[in-house]
Design a protein around this nucleic acid. Structure first.
Length: 691
RNA sequence: GCCGGAGUAGCUCAGUUGGUUAGAGCGGGCGUUUCAUACGCGCUAGGUCAGGGGUUCGACUCCCUUCUCCGGCACCA
């Protein structure tokens, strides 16, 4: 028996549960269940991350308090998971005292050991935005790009974490523990990131309040990630009932493993900052998480998940339609864990029919049918295995061992593949053994004994399968076992259910055949189901975002790319800010901006700059303006030609090096990979002034 | 541009340290059984293993190079 501690990321409360978070959480739960099957003492943690400026702002915009906002959103996560048959052992909120107290202790420990120091952050500051700006963000003449007013040089007090000190230590760690970061693509990325040099990390803010106060410095709140990462340990230090569960945390000589399941977008925080924080607090290398495993992103029916397009699939609704087990199975089986994957509704139905209905479901059904016919729905006494059975068991045991290995190495898709190889082998076996023929043996007794052997064999395999599917499909496992006349899977610590998977049933045990576990979905039902499930996206908005009126504008809060993951080495929040936080400008200030309608006459890529395009834009002048714009992530050069754009015509020229100088700027909105250009309706002549 | 990863049958992917006819699942096609949820089983893909060079007796598997895609970094709206 070993201890296995597995965690999901804690989810930021400016979002609600969606398919991506559901996926992380389902995988984590399946791993927890697998380890329980093995007799391990497994523990799963999930929760919500509730601090930070973003939350403070969202709450403000919604006219509520951060705490109330967090309460509501956190409750939605908490309510969602059980509906997906996720049974976390603990749900932590970063606003709980057990967490905040732990984090403050952690802070004090690190401070005492010398890796936190008070310093000053100095950079350009825009009073209008009330935030720092980096040099790069500024317009020529040190103007704020939003307010077009001069910025000031300002210092803010902040605590720094001595991250630079851990550069070498972390690289050595990665070298010594090759599995610490998985999959290996991510590992490579992290290594090259750290090799690129680590700067000390600003880990406190004075510009907002919604966070954990720094001990002894109430004007500072902690950087959200310092706060958030510690949840994995605070939840052990102070369990849900106040108990100390630190035995689950790895330690030299202990059998405890801790695995963090994360999305690939937050791997850096977990693989760089978190171990550095722990080392700084005096934990040894043996007391770091065993592994940080990053999964990929999901697309839905081939399209990116996007709030603006509203194709976010509600996992709870999906589960209520197809059943949590089916959703879980499909996610676990169809997506290669660690890689990006596509959630395809039609594929879900297809897989359901093939794997669940026709393979496993039908196997159960036909076996029980045979039992009803030949043994009175009881386990017969006959047991005389032939080479056919011996070969089958040999093969099937290998598959079971494969499945176990794959679960152990966190490859649910492969584990399930191996599991289903057993079901396939069983179906083949039925045909080969042909009990319906065997029963016609001239020697009646011999025929009956043969049939009983065959059926006992099948029952053994089905019993094994009912256990092996439990991590993915707990309810279906129970339903299956009920039909087999077995109690639901009940894992016990120290009792490895894989040890005797293929145990034979005792003669006389009875079954209770029920309705098909996985009725096959026919074409008509499928059509109706898909119609209900597949989210209606605005196709034109999806495929022609460039030309369409910006969909993001309708929901500013959602469009603002609210993420807590903004690079933390940047100054405190170079956030464009909500409309509420902007200051007002006088009419002449606006009038100072010369906005013109332009037509793109040519566009080409800028060498060595992935994001940049060099445009020639006709704004009614003798010759087209040369403008460098960061549009390359969204647009191909040729598709811009002929487009009407809005140009800031009186912007001071900016030199991009290599002979590329930009004389103006285009107006656009959205993230860099999905920009929408501002334009005008109607056939306005180039050079027309906007006012 | 730098650093990674990937490009294998219609789709999703396996292919160990280079070695006889390149694999699986799904879908499709053909055949077949009857216990079963019109389900199962068997057969079936003649695939330039992205392209081009090279090393080797021999390369999907090693080296070089080109192209495409995806990430990270850089640059940036």
């Amino acid at each position: 028996m070993a201890r296995f501690y597995v965690t999901t990321p804690i989810y930021y409360v400016n979002d609600v549960p969606h398919l991506g978070t559901a996926y992380s959480t389902i995988v984590t739960d399946a791993l927890r269940r697998y380890h329980l099957l093995r007799g391990d003492s497994a523990r799963m943690l999930t929760g919500t991350d509730e601090h930070g400026l973003k939350i403070e702002r969202v709450a403000h915009e919604k006219g509520t308090t951060p705490q109330r906002w967090a309460d509501e959103t956190s409750a939605r996560f908490r309510a969602a998971w059980p509906k997906l048959d996720i049974a976390a052992d603990d749900f932590i909120r970063t606003t709980e005292p057990r967490h905040t107290e732990f984090v403050r202790e952690l802070w004090k420990t690190i401070e005492a050991k010398g890796d936190l120091y008070e310093g000053e952050y100095e950079d350009w500051y825009c009073v209008g935005c009330e935030s720092f700006k980096t040099e790069k963000e500024l317009l020529p003449g040190n103007l704020c790009p939003i307010h077009l007013k001069p910025v000031e040089r300002l210092k803010e007090k902040t605590f720094f974490f001595r991250l630079s000190k851990y550069e070498k230590i972390l690289l050595e760690l990665y070298a010594r523990k090759p599995d610490f970061i998985a999959p290996k693509e991510r590992r490579n990325e992290i290594i090259s990131f750290v090799e690129g040099g680590l700067r000390d990390l600003s880990v406190s803010r004075t510009s907002f309040k919604w966070g954990i106060p720094v001990p002894g410095h109430d004007e500072h709140v902690m950087f959200v990630w310092f706060d958030a990462l510690a949840n994995y340990m605070s939840a052990l230090k102070h369990g849900p009932n106040g108990e100390d569960l630190m035995a689950y945390w790895p330690k030299l000589g202990s059998d405890a493993r801790a695995v963090h399941i994360v999305g690939k977008d937050i791997i850096r925080f977990h693989a760089v900052y978190w171990p550095a924080f722990l080392l700084a607090a005096g934990f040894t290398e043996d007391e770091l998480p065993s592994q940080v495993y990053a999964h990929g992103f999901l697309t839905i029916d081939g399209m990116k998940m996007s709030k603006a397009l509203r194709n976010g699939v509600d996992p709870v609704r999906l589960a209520s339609e197809v059943g949590p087990d089916v959703l879980r199975y499909h996610l676990l089986r169809a997506i290669a864990f660690g890689q990006d994957g596509d959630f395809d509704h039609a594929a879900l139905v297809e897989r359901y029919n093939a794997d669940l209905g026709k393979n496993l479901g039908n196997l159960l059904n036909r076996t029980l049918g045979l039992c009803a016919k030949y043994t009175g729905s009881k386990v017969g006494p006959g047991w005389a295995p032939t080479p056919l059975e011996d070969d089958l068991f040999a093969a099937v045991k290998i598959h079971a061992a494969d499945a176990a290995n794959e679960w152990d190495s966190i490859a649910p898709h492969r584990a399930l593949e191996a599991t289903w190889a057993i079901a396939s082998a069983a179906n083949q076996y039925v045909d080969r053994a042909a009990p319906w023929a065997a029963v016609k043996d001239a020697d009646k007794e011999r025929g009956q004994a043969r049939v009983e052997t065959i059926l006992s064999t099948l029952l053994s395999l089905l019993g094994a399968l009912s256990i092996m599917i439990w991590p993915a499909m707990p309810q279906k496992s129970a339903a299956m076992r009920k039909q087999l006349g077995l109690e639901p899977v009940e894992p016990r610590t120290g009792h490895d259910l894989f040890a005797n998977l293929f145990a034979l049933r005792a003669p006389g045990e009875a079954f209770s055949v029920g309705a098909p576990l996985f009725p096959v979905i026919d074409k008509d039902t499928e059509k109706a189901l898909l119609e209900r499930l597949v989210p209606k996206t605005d196709a034109s908005a999806a495929t022609d975002a460039a030309a369409a009126a910006t969909p993001a504008a309708a929901t500013p809060a959602a469009a603002a790319a609210l993420s807590k993951n903004d690079a933390p080495t940047k100054p405190p929040e170079a956030d464009p800010g909500s409309p509420m936080t902007r200051s007002l400008i006088a009419y002449d200030q606006f009038g100072a901006v010369d906005l013109r309608v332009g037509v793109v006459v040519s566009a080409e890529r800028v060498q060595k700059k992935d994001k940049l395009l060099q445009l020639k834009v006709d704004i009614g002048e003798e010759s087209p303006r040369s403008i460098i714009a960061g549009l390359a992530k969204t647009f191909k050069p040729e598709e811009l030609v002929g487009k009407r754009v809005i140009v800031v015509a009186n912007l001071a020229p900016r030199d991009f090096g290599g002979g590329f100088v930009s004389f103006g700027m285009l107006l656009a909105t959205g993230p860099s990979e999905d920009l929408t250009l501002a334009t005008v309706t109607g056939n306005v002549a180039p050079g027309a002034r906007l006012k």
